[in-house]
Simulated assay, not measured.
Amino acid sequence: MTALRNNLSALWWVPRGIIFGLLAFFIFGPLFNMLLWTVTEKWYFPHTFPLEYGFSSWEKVFAPRGGALESLGNSLVVALLTVAVALALAIPAGYALARLKLPLRGVILLAFLIPQAFPNLTVYVNIARIFYEIGLNGTIPGVVLVHVSHGLVYAVWIATAAFSAIDPELEQAARNIGAGPLRTFRDVTLPLAAPGLMASAIFVFLESLDEFTGSFFVGAPDVNMLPLLLYTTASGGNYQIASITALLLLVPSLVFMLVVERFLKADVLSRVGQ
């Protein structure tokens, strides 16, 4: 009887192994395929693996005419400006939502989700028309404003959670020993909320770095960015250039998500949306 149970237990790992194997294939298979394309010189059907390997595509990407360096620079500038504007708005808004007894506080938090509630295509087409009339279409400030509208929801919600996780008695203790409101906020509240605000900034940065639809309708063709370069090369069938561009977008996302996991504590996560 014991031997039969041991055999059944051993057989139970077979379907588990198959399920985990399929999950690994669907998750890591496309990533492995992308990495292969980044070093491929010649690859066509019916060959399973590339026939020739090399780095000539990397030289084309980073050549002056390749457009990757310009797109990377524009993407980083737009993402950093988006973070700066989003945090400048999110820090006072998050503190007010966390500390003040505002009426309809839940409605205010939900209002930041409105840009996510409608199809991006229709929204950005109308934004592009308005920006064209006021001279913002095809400019970096115009792209930044569009990215802020999407990233603000992460910034405000996480900032509110970060400030809510701070014990108000710490602020009261600072006030009792003579610190003013601004000094209390600068020396007590802000340092304690810094990990959550850092995670908020990273989320906004990644959202901006990967944003395609808004960048296309508001920025193209004057503001070249990595998602636009990825779309252009992929639609043109240049899978080597597209894979290298995708890798340039993927690496910062992985690195920053590891940073978010370190900085975003459980007490902050438990208060998101509250």
Rank of each mutant, 00 (worst) to 15 (best):
G142R: 08
G135E: 12
A162P: 02
A93Q: 02
A173V: 15
V143H: 07
A162S: 14
L182V: 15
D167N: 15
L80C: 10
L113D: 07
P168K: 08
I130K: 05
I114A: 13
G106P: 06
L100T: 03
L100M: 12
A90N: 02
A98P: 02
I130E: 08
I114E: 04
L110H: 09
L104N: 07
A79C: 08
F163E: 01
L145G: 10
G106V: 06
L81I: 06
S164Y: 00
A161P: 09
L80M: 13
L100G: 00
R175D: 01
P115I: 11
A162Y: 01
E171L: 13
F185W: 14
A179M: 12
N137D: 00
L87V: 01
Y124R: 04
T184A: 14
R183W: 06
I127F: 10
Y132T: 14
G135V: 12
P141T: 09
V144Q: 09
F163W: 07
P181F: 05
A174C: 10
P141H: 14
A159K: 01
G142Q: 10
L145I: 12
I158V: 15
L81P: 00
L97R: 09
P103W: 03
R105H: 08
P115L: 09
T189M: 11
E133P: 00
T160R: 06
A155S: 04
T82A: 05
V188F: 08
E133L: 15
V77K: 15
Y132V: 03
G178K: 07
W157F: 06
Y95I: 08
I134L: 11
L97E: 06
V188W: 05
P115Y: 10
L136N: 12
V85E: 01
R183N: 07
L81G: 11
A155Q: 02
R99S: 06
L81E: 01
R105F: 07
K101G: 13
T189L: 13
R186Y: 14
E133I: 07
V77M: 10
E171A: 15
A173M: 13
Y154Q: 08
A173W: 03
A179Q: 07
N126Y: 05
L81V: 05
V188N: 10
T160E: 03
I91R: 01
A111N: 09
S164C: 00
I108C: 12
N137A: 15
T160G: 04
S164T: 13
S164K: 13
A93D: 02
I91Q: 00
L80I: 15
S149Q: 10
N126S: 15
G178C: 11
A117D: 06
L104Q: 11
G135L: 08
T122I: 15
V83S: 03
F131P: 11
V123C: 08
I134V: 15
V123Y: 06
L190V: 13
D167C: 10
T160H: 04
E133W: 10
P119W: 05
A179L: 13
T184R: 13
I158K: 11
H150C: 05
A162M: 12
L81T: 04
T82W: 03
P92G: 05
Q116P: 00
G94A: 04
V143P: 07
Q172C: 02
Y154E: 01
L152F: 01
R186D: 03
L113E: 03
V77N: 00
A98L: 06
I130F: 09
A117W: 11
R175T: 14
L110V: 08
P115Q: 03
H150I: 15
T82E: 00
